[in-house]
Design a protein around this nucleic acid. Structure first.
Lengths: 240, 240
DNA sequence: TGGAAACTGTGTGCCAGCGCACAGAACTGT
DNA sequence: ACAGTTCTGTGCGCTGGCACACAGTTTCCA
């Protein structure tokens, strides 16, 4: 639940011409623009189980994930909460500011360690305003996010847990260079909005089918194709 | 399932200074701008059970509902589908174009008769580009829609049918001057993504509680406060 | 090295909503 | 006035996931 640990300033010097950004949004900038943005950014790390923001928090900073992923969640009363989308290197945290909002719409939770480039929201908006192409790329991302969230309604309504779990693991894997995935059944239950032992059942079955292998919070995907078959169709609509 | 019936051209003459637009988005335009937009618009009617678009359709025209409401839905395979939001006079159909998309993200279904002002998407975008304030209003609407859809995930996951039905009826009523509401249990089932007899049960119970009264597709809200208490919290997040 | 904490497996009873099916009621058109 | 259609009420067995509970296992730390 803590905030960031280990914040280090990150100047131009760290970024050489061959190491392009790890974030797709930043990749859409020209080298010059990227340099300028990097000059007012720093690299921030979040530990697993951190919470970057909750819905309604004022957006002071924008984050561009460069390794790992965040989980966009929505919380109701009586502590019910569920994930609506992932945001990894394909995305940007704080996109709401592009729509003129001053506060986050969703909770931003960090299931596994995350590194992200942090930019002041003012600096970000100035650059977005000055670069129509970049802004359009971001609008497209927002539209994609919208699609995913809308599918989430259907998914939550119709799809069984095992398929949703398979989808979830695939989406994590897509944003996650490291092996294995470091998620406990408890955390997965939180994301999926189900109880923990439900995840045990589903995961046990997926393992029985030879699709995954796990032990105490370490999950490995053994059969990607098989897992895609076990996942609900929604996986195909994911932006990654 | 038919398209529009009864399309009539609607010039400036029909709109006098005292009859302001029935659509909130249009209300944000100056009289001059409104006049100009009206000159390239016409009023279109859709009959109940019409389908204006399905996700993926190219956006050729933008609609500003002026009476009635549309239902934004998402469809999966095996004919499962569920509503993610309403769009009435507070909204605009085809907002996706503001994010640079050329096609609709969601299905647009018409449960009850709907009248909407129709504008060519090109004309619309020109005017949106020229009017920053208006564009910002629309972005805010998109953000509100996003919130509603995200809550929909939580709602579909956690809230029981009776509460969701109550919410649905309230949201219809908010966008619906006419009494009674003209929706069959079948249509409600389609919106909520449940089976028809589930709606029968829930509706029977709401009627038993004295909150609503219905007969063969005519629904009347008898006790608005009571219905709000019966509805899930999500009702409070609705934009209307 | 031993105890606490975290993680996982399992079991039991329960409930909302499903799928399917059918019957009665109300409306509609000719 | 009658026949067809639409809408609604009801019943039954089933299932996915819930709530609660507890035991076993692995890891971590003092």
């Amino acid at each position: 639940m803590e905030r960031a640990v280990d914040t280090q300033p990150l100047g131009l010097g760290r970024r050489t011409s061959e190491t392009v950004s790890e974030n797709r949004m930043l990749d859409c900038l020209s080298p010059d623009e990227l340099s300028q943005l990097m000059a007012v950014s720093d690299l921030t790390s979040f530990v697993a189980d951190a919470r970057i923001a909750v819905g309604g928090d004022v957006i002071r900073e924008i984050y561009f994930p460069v390794s790992g992923y965040a989980s966009l969640m929505i919380t109701g009363s009586e502590e019910s909460s569920v994930q609506v989308a992932f945001a990894g290197r394909e995305g940007i945290l704080g996109w709401e500011s592009l729509l003129g909002r001053e506060s986050f719409l969703l909770d931003i939770y960090v299931p596994e360690a995350l590194k992200a480039l942090r930019v002041d929201v003012g600096e970000f908006l100035i650059r977005a305003a000055a670069n129509e192409h970049w802004r359009n790329v971001q609008f497209k991302y927002v539209a994609g996010l919208f699609t995913v969230v809308a599918r989430g309604v259907l998914c939550a309504r119709f799809h069984v847990l095992e398929a949703r779990l398979a989808r979830c693991l695939l989406e994590v894997s897509d944003r996650h260079a490291e092996i294995p995935i470091l998620l406990t059944q408890n955390t997965l239950a939180k994301l999926l909005g189900v109880r923990r032992s439900g995840v045990t059942n589903a995961a046990t079955h997926l393992q029985l089918l030879g699709l995954i292998q796990y032990r105490r919070g370490e999950i490995r995907l053994l059969d990607r194709k098989g897992l895609e078959a076990a996942a609900c169709e929604c996986y195909r609509f994911d932006v990654h």
